[in-house]
Design a protein around this nucleic acid. Sequence first.
RNA 1: GCACUCAUAGCUCAGCUGGAUAGAGCAUCGGUUUGCGGUACCGAAGGUCUCAGGUUCGAAUCCUGAUGGGUGUACCA
Length: 565
Amino acid sequence: MKLKLHINNVIKDAFIKAGIAHEPMSVSEATKAEFGDFQFNGAMALSKKLGKNPREIAGNIIESLDLSGIISKAEIAGPGFINLWINPLWIAEQCQAAVSDKRLNIAKTETPSRVVVDYSGPNMAKQMHVGHLRSTIIGDTLANVLTFLGDEVIRQNHIGDWGTQFGMLIAYLEEIGEDGSVSLKDLEQFYKDAKGRFDADAAFADKAREYVVKIQSGDRHCLELWQKFIDISLGHCEDIYEKLGVKLTREDVRAESFYNEDLSKVVEDLAANGTLQESDGAQCVFLEGDEVPVIVQKRDGGYLYATTDLAALRYRAQTLQAKRISYVVDARQAGHFKQVFRVAKESGFVAEDVQLEHVGFGTMMDKSGKPFKTRDGGTVKLIDLLDEAVVKAKEAIKNKEDYTSEEIDALAKIIGIGAVKYADLSINRESNYIFNWDKMLSFEGNTSLYMQYAYARIQSIFRKYDGDIKGEIIIGDALEHRLAVMLLRFEDVLTRAAKDTSPNQITAYLYDLVTLFMRFYEQNPILRADVDEKTKMSRLQLADLTAKTIKQGLSLLGIQVVNKL
RNA sequence: GCACUCAUAGCUCAGCUGGAUAGAGCAUCGGUUUGCGGUACCGAAGGUCUCAGGUUCGAAUCCUGAUGGGUGUACCA
């Protein structure tokens, strides 16, 4: 239900009827309940253009407003605000349509766009650490939401599988032989051991260097070892994706190595364009206004990060035919992407109408506001963080005696992982945030457990009530009205969150929704004996729609719900 | 040095296209229960939105400057 669009259309009609030859600005949600459901602030802005006072303009608009359909009441307030009330009968009708529809009456877009979402991008030489969390779950959420809204989404996992360090790792893998997969369980350790050999043994180091050259020139034996290493390493990542409920698969992997053969072409084509310049022996693109150039080829002939990204951009725009390409990468790389995007467009690798965006995000901090590290200063492995979340979630489950130990394990997994994800996704993407277990696993405030609790509570209503649900939704009091309007806003929120790539708009909405439901439920009994049948049916359906909206919302964030907790 | 970015309640955070008295949660103080899951709900208190100018009918939001943090800055990814 595109709620705002409907209301905007009513305003637009009023503009035409009133003979105002301007495009009206969009309505916005009312800032307070007593101001109605929505407000239109465009009269003030028109005041100067029309040479009239804003209240008079607002009056003209209201006179021309159709109050027989979606909007039932309109009032002028203050300097020229128009407060709008939505017709309760219409709201009820729309909620009814939503509750009986699998997609909650949210249509897929009629103009789907092909979107590449680049996210996660772990390095195969190392284990995933907490720094990969945000990219992985923000990117996955974006992909989920866009898919749900009807776009054609291509997920791309640009894993780091190429470069000099791999020679060392492969040489070591060969040296320790068949049981390499065992040692590889701990990639950090494997990396350290390989590095130890590299530093201590000159023959080993020579072999490692030799392997780098061999891999890149396509030596079969070395490539086999390399492939084995990548498979094992990627397997670790997939364990984490599985735990996180992230939908990345092997099909989505387009590794750095995938673009290997394109790299020389990128440089050639830039040279042919005349955009390339040599500087200190390196091949560079100098952008107007930028101090540092984009280096695409080193003095020694090697290629760089930017070269691979240019190749990937071209592949995504030309071969995959994407119209929007979103990179979910740490905010610190803003400068890099700004430059690479410019080169891609200016060189014609990517057409002008393709939207390139760097979806940057802030850093995870510890309690003291410093980057999140282990006690001894190392990076925190993502797997350890997730395992700890499950352990802590177990402690948070109250009536443990009601469950078998298998049930508790399953619950703890959903709740623990969900809590970590929700806490992260509920923070404004661009800001740094302080990681806090207690807050994350609290039932209070905008947390996953508050959502889960509300959801479980609603499910409990339906466990108690085993009759049929029939009849209509009737909007009774003001709280029901507000709850119903809130439910209808879901699509607008998703659309906006997708446009801005900000998952926290979804969590903020869910929190508002749940808070409103809790208030509604406190005040409006459903199953109590003194509630008449019609009211009971109506409220049951509102509760049902609330639960379905929570479930759908969390599902887009990649978080499961539980019926009991 | 230059560039980017951030600064909102004691703490952790919201605040979308500029709109009405800047909102939540925690912590503090107080209230609600013959209970549909109290891990809930209601209320009080808490703010010169870092500072100074400017634009505007209207600025936490836009512009300029200052101060204080963070980040990036030529052959790593």
